Amino acid sequence: MVHRLMVCTTCASTWENGKKIGISGGEILFQELTGLYQSWGDRSNFDICAIACMSACSHACVVTFASPAKPSYVFGDLPSDAERVGDTAAAILQCAEIYRDRPNGLMAWKERPEPLRNGVIARIPPL
């Protein structure tokens, strides 16, 4: 079964006069994730992709786990600052493994890594 990890790259952007300035927190998180993803053993079961905006700006940074027969999870309020982005990225991939291993995709609060425990924005039923 194919799973997808989507990362909002507009999250935690700085804007001036309607133009984005510098690199966003979402881009930093995506870069960290893609670096870890290259050595991650589960690449054959997960695609990772950048999404221009997930419209959860008040909860930056945002990622989503999705799969055709499972509910999609949208997580927000994920740290992307230099001191914590490595831990955040590792926790996301750890959570991705839990999601992958569940036939129904459901993840209990207590089994999720710390950065993903309180940041659930939505659990969207499968189509």
Rank of each mutant, 00 (worst) to 15 (best):
A66K: 12
F46C: 00
I92V: 09
T64W: 07
V63S: 01
V63T: 09
A60I: 07
A90H: 01
D47N: 13
E83V: 11
A60E: 10
A69T: 11
P68G: 07
A52Y: 11
A60W: 09
P79S: 13
S80L: 02
A89N: 01
D77K: 10
C57Q: 14
A50F: 02
M54K: 04
D81A: 05
A82W: 00
I48P: 04
C49K: 12
P79N: 09
E83S: 08
Q94D: 12
K70C: 07
A82N: 14
E83T: 11
A82C: 02
S72R: 08
A60Q: 07
I92N: 01
V63K: 05
A82G: 09
A66P: 06
S72Y: 06
S55H: 14
A82K: 13
D87F: 07
L93M: 02
D81Y: 07
E83Q: 15
S58F: 13
F75Y: 14
C49E: 10
A66Y: 11
Y73I: 03
L93F: 00
I92E: 03
D77G: 10
I92W: 03
T64V: 12
L93V: 00
A89L: 00
M54N: 10
F75N: 07
F65H: 08
S72E: 09
D87A: 11
E83N: 13
C61K: 05
S44E: 15
P79F: 08
P71L: 04
D42H: 15
I51H: 09
G86F: 04
T88N: 00
C49F: 12
M54P: 06
G86W: 02
P71K: 03
C57K: 07
A89S: 02
G76M: 04
V74D: 04
P68C: 06
V62Y: 03
P79L: 06
M54R: 08
S58I: 11
A52T: 15
D42P: 04
I51R: 14
T88R: 04
S80D: 15
A69F: 12
P68L: 11
T64M: 10
A66S: 12
T88P: 00
A60R: 11
S55E: 12
P68K: 09
L93A: 00
N45I: 06
A89T: 02
D47M: 15
C57T: 10
S67Y: 09
A69V: 15
G76W: 05
A56W: 14
M54A: 05
V74K: 08
I48E: 02
N45P: 01
C49V: 15
A52K: 15
R84P: 05
D87R: 09
A56G: 15
L78F: 03
P79A: 13
V63M: 06
V85G: 00
K70L: 10
I51L: 08
P79D: 11
S67T: 10
A66R: 10
L93D: 01
N45T: 14
C57F: 07
H59G: 14
V85D: 00
A91N: 00
P71E: 06
H59A: 12
C53A: 08
F75G: 01
N45K: 09
I48F: 03
I51T: 12
S80M: 04
M54Y: 06
Q94G: 02
S80R: 04
F75C: 04
S58K: 13
A56K: 13
F46I: 03
E83K: 08
F75W: 06
S72N: 10
R84E: 12
S67V: 10
T64Y: 08
L78R: 03
V63C: 07
A91Y: 02
Y73H: 05
V62R: 03
